[in-house]
């Protein structure tokens, strides 16, 4: 069985976001990490490798430095890695990104494609379902658990909703978007890190993408366009008091609640 995991290198938003003086994001000043949902998806793929001897390929689209997340994935146990990088791919929205990844996947063999539910930088959760549409694959989003029946060529996935879950069966090949709950990612091993740097990362450019029109790539191929981006405007600070006693605190709060007609 062949599994392809789509991963993205993202700035670590937990450490706060840094901006350049012109208001654009200072990606250079932030730590770059493998997107957490993607890492959970990779872990799920590696478990299928442990269980069924699946071959795991990781693919990413990005700047040349995104190779770092591919090396990390191989150090965790992925077998092969593909970096899709080309100037004409820059500035892509989710339509153009998913068209690009679909173009790369058309050159690969797969039974299962796994993406993360969403990337922590864009927060859209759109690329996975859009890739599936471009490739004509069934999609199961928000996967919490994956079981593969290799013989019957199908997969059963626990698919999460707000107040319930569905056990969903799909035919292979199919695409699954992974929730972080899918599995605690394993660590890289020292041997794995050595091996990961010995292994080759396949680099593909525009010419290696199959059956994709130029008009669907990069900034030019993006239906959505950014009108404005800015650091969030913080609400003005209200009152803050440090009372000497609980009684005083309560008096203050009851006063405000009464004034505002809450009580």
């Amino acid at each position: 069985m062949k599994v392809v995991v789509c991963i993205k290198q993202v700035p670590d938003t937990k450490g706060g976001v840094k901006f350049k003086p012109d208001g654009t994001l200072d990606r250079g000043a932030m730590l770059a990490i493998m997107n957490p949902d993607d890492k959970a998806g990779l872990e799920a793929a590696l478990r299928l490798k442990d269980q069924y001897g699946a071959e795991v390929t990781v693919v990413t689209m990005g700047l040349p430095k995104a190779e770092a997340v591919l090396r990390e994935a191989m150090a965790m146990g992925a077998d092969k890695a593909v970096l899709v990088t080309d100037r004409v791919l820059g500035g892509a929205d989710t339509w153009a990104t998913s068209s690009t990844i679909a173009g790369a996947l058309r050159n690969m063999e797969y039974d299962l494609v796994i993406t993360g539910r969403q990337a922590i930088d864009g927060d859209t959760a759109q690329v996975g379902p859009q890739i599936s549409e471009h490739l004509g694959l069934p999609v199961i989003s928000y996967a919490e658990e994956i079981k593969v029946d290799e013989k019957a060529k199908k997969v059963v996935v626990k698919r999460q909703f707000e107040d319930r879950y569905h056990m969903v069966e799909a035919k292979l090949p199919c695409l699954i978007t992974a929730l972080a709950e899918l599995g605690e990612p394993r660590y890289m091993t020292p041997g794995g890190i050595f091996d990961a740097f010995e292994k080759e990362v396949t680099v593909w450019g525009r010419a290696d993408l199959k059956d994709v029109d130029d008009s669907n790539l990069g900034l030019k191929g993006s239906p959505t366009q950014i009108a404005k981006a800015s650091d969030k405007v913080k609400k003005g600070q209200g009152e803050k008091v440090t009372p000497d006693s609980a009684e005083e605190a309560v008096e203050y709060l009851v006063g405000k609640l009464t004034e505002k007609h809450v009580i």
Binding site: P11, V17, D123, I226, K228, A229
Partner: peptide
């Protein structure tokens, strides 16, 4: 976007 740190207006 970016974990709520940025707001973007898109058309």
């Amino acid at each position: 976007a970016f974990g709520g740190n940025t707001i973007a207006t898109i058309a």
